[in-house]
Design a protein around this nucleic acid. Structure first.
Lengths: 154, 154
DNA sequence: TTATGAAACTTCAAGCTTGAAATAATCTTC
DNA sequence: GAAGATTATTTCAAGCTTGAAGTTTCATAA
C-alpha cells in the first residue's frame, strides 16, 4: 500500500496519488501518536473520541461516535471503557431508550482535552509547516470535494 | 483526530487540511481492506509487504521492510511470519551476516501478488475516480514536496 | 398482546501496532 | 583477542481494529 505502482497505464496517476496520500498521513499520524504518548500519556483513538465529545456537550451515543469516527462499534466500546475507567468520560443511562447511553466528557475530561488539543493543533501546524496557508486551503478543497462525491455511495 | 478544529487562529487551515487528509485516507483504506479480505482473503499489511518484496526480487532485510513501510521492526516480524506460514515468502539465512536473513517472495507469492495488485490498482482508480488525472498529478506534487521537506528531520 | 424483526450495544477471536526488553552476531578499540 | 558498543532481529504486553455472533431493548403488526 505504501509501495509504488507496479505497472503503467491509465490508473497510474491515481495510484501514485493514493500512495503519497497514505505515506503522508502515516508519517504525520505516527509522529502525533508518539507525541501524545510522550507528552500526555494518551493515544490517538482516545484523543479522537474526546475530540468528538468535546464538540457535543450534550453527549453522543456509541453509534454516533462510531459513525463519526469511521470505526466499528466494538472498537468504540473498548476505547470508551478505558476512558471511563480513567474518569475522563461517563456513560449516562437514558430513560427513553434503555439500549443506549449518552457518552459525555467529565469536567476533568474536558479540561484534559482542552490542554491536549492546544498542543495538538500546534504540532499539526508544525508538521504541515511546509504547506502554505493558501496551499492548505486549496488542498483541503480538493480533498473535501473528493470526500463528498464519494461518501454515501453504495 | 478526525474531528474538526476546536479553535480559530493561525494553524487552523493546516489543521483542517490534516483532518481532511486523514478522513480521506481512512475512508479509502477501509474500503481497500474490506475488498482485499472479501476478494482475496488477505490483509493490507500483508499486501504492503508483498508489494515491497515484488519490487525487490533480490530480497529485503527485515529492517529494510520496516524502514520502507514505516512500521516497527516487531510488526514486520509478525507479518512475515504469517506470510511464511502461508508459503508466500521465504526467509533465507545469509552467509555474510548471521543476524540477518533475506526475505523474498516465493514463486507462488509473486504470482499471487500480481493478481491482487492488478485488482488493487483498479480499485484505487475507481475510488479516486472523482479526481482527474491532472488534478491527481498536482496533488501528488504537493504531497511529494511536503514529504521530502519533512522527512529526514530529527 | 405477543411474535417477529430491527436497533443499539457488547463480547470475542484474530490480527495489526508500538515501544521496550531480550538475544545474538558483528564491529571497534585497546 | 577480549571488553564494550553497535546492529539486526525477535519477543512480549498492552492497546487498537474489524467482523461476526450474542444480548437486551424497542417497534410493529397481526
Amino acid at each position: 500500500m505504501v509501495a509504488g505502482p507496479t505497472s503503467t497505464g491509465p490508473g497510474k496517476e491515481r495510484l501514485r496519488l493514493w500512495i503519497r496520500l497514505l505515506r503522508a498521513s502515516r508519517t504525520i499520524e505516527a509522529e502525533l501518536r508518539e507525541r501524545l504518548k510522550k507528552e500526555f500519556d494518551t493515544t490517538l483513538p482516545r484523543f479522537d473520541v474526546m475530540a468528538a465529545l468535546y464538540r457535543s456537550p450534550e453527549g453522543m451515543l456509541m453509534s454516533d461516535l462510531s459513525r463519526f469516527l469511521l470505526v466499528s462499534n466494538g472498537n468504540v466500546t473498548g476505547i470508551v471503557d478505558r476512558l471511563v475507567s480513567e474518569g475522563l468520560v461517563t456513560r449516562a443511562r437514558r430513560n427513553g431508550d434503555r439500549r443506549t447511553s449518552m457518552v459525555r466528557l467529565t469536567e476533568e475530561g474536558a479540561k484534559s482535552f482542552a490542554a491536549i488539543a492546544a498542543a495538538h493543533e500546534g504540532w499539526v501546524g508544525e508538521l504541515l509547516g511546509t504547506v502554505s496557508e493558501d496551499e492548505a486551503r486549496r488542498l483541503t478543497g480538493m480533498l473535501k470535494s473528493f470526500r463528498s462525491n464519494w461518501e454515501g455511495r453504495e
